[in-house]
Design a protein around this nucleic acid. Structure first.
Lengths: 209, 209
DNA sequence: TCAGATAAACTACTTTCGTCGTTTAGACAT
DNA sequence: ATGTCTAAACGACGAAAGTAGTTTATCTGA
């Protein structure tokens, strides 16, 4: 039975799981997701096929972990942290989502079929949601809303906007879309009241490297 | 090879596909989605297993068609039409999403794993998006936004809110959540300007039966 | 009504999936 | 260093997934 992916201490587990994720990523440069078998992945990762199932329920679970982890890492690399006061950190999240979507669709196309896209999308949205929630969980929101609802709504809204931008023919560069998308979703975030003690909050630091 | 699902003339095709969808729906009252095999579905639908693949690529595609069609039908039954002016029709969409989510999760639980949930969610969101887009496509929006982007963003935001409500412990009844959720997403819709010729637009008619 | 078209049934086959039980070997604490 | 714990390897198995080709039955249009 598979074990949770976060906070794995044993280096053997990390090595194997990373090998599987790298193998899947590389294979997706050539084939579409549904053409890839578990055997293909384990062959390339050089682990036994049965071992695969010690870590993931199926290839969908592997994809899920890969996307969620990859996007979360992208946010971490860019030092994106959201503390509840919106503007700059939210922009960084939007831009990261644009970049990630572009990067993952660089390889083989025809992934618009099957369960691939919805699954990848769910992973991205979940990562955005967690980031937003960390900044919102202590803030008051009018009942019956909750910080979780505000965070989830914003996360889904952001991804929806980015996705539609991505599939727009002759889309403008992502840098020009960040502000308009931010304006779209700002109304949701403003539902949350000011953060507890202080009335003024310093804008969040965001650095691109 | 599967054929598109909309506008099927041959009654044989309609009968078979409906039988498959009904079978899957009934089976999901007892087992979780991933426990259901194609054989189970075709046995209950009383069609040959090979015939299944004449209509759908796999059971995920069947689920997709079932959810999208089912939710679309729910909207149609309630006479939900969105013509671009927000309030009442948007409320009806939100309420329908709540109801549909509750109804589909009435049977076997443990569907939070695997690809089931993301796939179902994608179907619902797509149906919401199409409904919104029909009402928005002729309205002006500030560049570089497009009616499609506004519609998609709203659709995803609505579903995100409803989903998080659904998973909230001791959640209030859906009727009490419609207004707060509407307030959350209203800001997005208001990005779209007034509909073409007339400055005042009559509220959309919505009837529940 | 009849003829052509085509969906469905059916059989048979290969591939992939998912699991089980055993063995091997690497990680970690003492 | 040494012993214990446990992940990984491995082989084998049955079940399910897909696919291919042929036959049968039904719809559709003239």
């Amino acid at each position: 039975m598979p074990i949770s992916d976060c906070e794995v201490r044993d280096p053997r587990i990390r090595r194997t799981r990373q090998a599987l994720q790298v193998a899947l990523r590389d294979l997706m440069q050539q084939k579409s997701f549904e053409e890839i078998s578990v055997q293909d992945i384990t062959d390339l990762a050089d682990v036994n096929r049965a071992t695969f199932y010690d870590h993931y329920n199926d290839k969908f679970a592997l994809l899920d972990a890969m996307v969620a982890g990859g996007f979360h890492r992208l946010l971490a690399e860019r030092n994106v942290m959201f503390d509840g006061t919106c503007p700059s950190a939210a922009s960084a999240i939007i831009l990261a989502a644009c970049d990630y979507l572009v990067s993952t669709h660089a390889g083989a196309e025809c992934n618009r079929n099957s369960a691939f896209e919805p699954l990848m999308e769910a992973g991205i949205v979940a990562a955005i949601q967690r980031t937003l929630f960390r900044g919102l969980e202590t803030r008051p929101v009018p009942a019956p809303l909750t910080p979780a609802i505000v965070a989830t709504t914003t996360a889904w809204a952001i991804y929806g906007a980015v996705k539609q931008w991505f599939y727009t023919p002759d889309r403008p560069p992502s840098s020009e879309m960040v502000q308009p998308i931010l304006q779209l979703i700002l109304g949701i975030l403003q539902t949350a009241g000011p953060t507890g003690p202080h009335d003024h909050v310093e804008p969040l630091t965001v650095s691109h490297e």
